[in-house]
């Protein structure tokens, strides 16, 4: 089962000192290397700061574009890992290894299973919408 590890962090104005940043990078690299070695890693990437986020919402065919992230929360999404694990306990073990102080303050990891796109019925649904929209 693939799990997405959403890395939530507390963004701080001051950010990290270059020393802390190096330490953090090394910690992430260590997880990535271990996960690669064990054949678990499916993907991992940092996200830019929420200051650079743009939210796009399409309503009644009109698009509303706003500055900033979708939700104002105490902790912000800073990156993700996708890991292929035997079960939730194994995923939790990995989550415990992932550093969360990516933008200054310590945060947490949200572990979400990735069920995958339902193969046939999914395409049918898309085709159905296309028919509705295109007449």
């Amino acid at each position: 089962m693939r799990y997405m590890m959403l890395v939530y962090t507390k963004e701080k104005e001051s950010g990290l000192t270059s020393e802390q940043a190096e330490e953090l990078k090394a910690a992430h690299r260590a997880v990535i290397e271990e996960a690669t070695r064990k054949g678990v890693l499916q993907g991992a990437e940092p996200l830019g700061p929420t200051a650079n986020a743009t939210t796009v919402r399409v309503q009644n065919g009109k698009s509303l574009i706003t500055d900033g992230p979708f939700a104002e929360t105490k902790e912000q999404l800073a990156g993700y890992y996708i890991l292929d694990c035997k079960n939730l306990d194994e995923a939790i073990e990995w989550a415990e290894k992932i550093p969360t102080a990516c933008r200054g303050g310590e945060g947490c990891i949200e572990v979400r299973p990735l069920p995958g796109m339902p193969a046939r019925s999914g395409t049918e649904a898309i085709a159905g919408h296309a028919a509705t929209l295109n007449g």
Binding site: D89, P113, P115
Partner: peptide, 9 residues
């Protein structure tokens, strides 16, 4: 769906 294991930790 989240595969909570069925085993003794």
């Amino acid at each position: 769906e989240a595969r909570i294991p069925y085993e003794v930790p």
